[in-house]
Amino acid sequence: MNPTDYSYQSSQVSAIQGQPIHPTSFFYRPENDFYHYRVNCKEIKHNVITYFLNSNNKIQFHENEHVFFYHQQYDDRFYQVICELVSPTAITNYLNENIYGIKLQQNMGQEQLSFSIEQKQNLEFYLAQYLSNNLLI
């Protein structure tokens, strides 16, 4: 092993050790937003990113989903970040059932959740900042 290889690996491990480890699936609520989101970060390889960038095909997602790509600087990994709007009624039902032990019969079928452009931009901005302070593994 070359001594410079060791010092590079050692500094890389030190940088990673000081960084909080974060799961790739979690719930998140950004600033300036009333909604909560279910977030799932899936690692993607560099050749897949090149394919997406060079492809004219757009992937279609549901109205209640927003997808963007995130580059983790610490280890040069790329992630596809899938954000799904969480129904406020679902949150209310969950809290009532798990804190008070009661099941309310609220109808979630009528809720139509979809992203606005401002909501997407706000979510990407704050979520990218949040992720940059954590290490996805």
Rank of each mutant, 00 (worst) to 15 (best):
L53P: 00
D75W: 04
N57I: 14
R38E: 08
S116P: 08
E111P: 05
I82P: 00
G109V: 11
K103D: 14
H71N: 07
Y100I: 08
E65R: 01
I117P: 03
F68V: 00
I44P: 01
Y100E: 14
N47K: 11
T89G: 09
Y100D: 13
S87G: 03
T92M: 12
I117E: 15
Y94K: 10
S114T: 08
E65F: 00
I99G: 05
N96K: 10
V86L: 13
E84K: 14
I49T: 01
V67H: 02
Y79C: 01
F61V: 10
I117S: 14
I117Q: 15
I49G: 00
P88A: 08
Q73Y: 12
R77P: 01
H36Q: 10
S114G: 02
N57H: 13
L53M: 10
Q112E: 13
C41D: 05
T50F: 05
T89Y: 08
Q80T: 12
H46G: 04
I49M: 02
G109F: 09
Q72L: 08
L95M: 14
S87E: 07
R77C: 07
L95P: 04
V81H: 06
Y74L: 15
N47V: 12
N57G: 03
Q60P: 01
F61G: 01
Q105L: 09
F68Q: 01
K45C: 01
L95N: 11
N64Y: 04
V48W: 03
Y74A: 09
E63V: 00
I49A: 00
P88M: 07
Y79M: 05
Y51L: 07
I44F: 04
S116D: 10
T89H: 05
F52S: 02
Q110P: 00
I49D: 00
N54F: 07
L95R: 13
L85C: 04
D75H: 10
E65C: 03
G101D: 06
E65W: 02
F69G: 00
E118M: 12
I44Q: 04
Y100T: 12
C83L: 08
S87C: 11
F115Y: 14
N56D: 15
E111F: 11
F61P: 02
Y70L: 04
E111I: 08
L113N: 07
N93C: 10
F78M: 05
Q73M: 05
N98R: 15
N64T: 03
T89F: 08
K103T: 15
V86D: 04
H62I: 02
L104T: 10
T92K: 14
H66P: 02
S55I: 10
N40Y: 11
E65N: 04
S87V: 03
Y37W: 06
S116L: 13
I99H: 05
H36R: 09
S114D: 10
A90K: 11
N54D: 09
E97D: 12
V81D: 03
Q112P: 02
V39Y: 07
R77E: 07
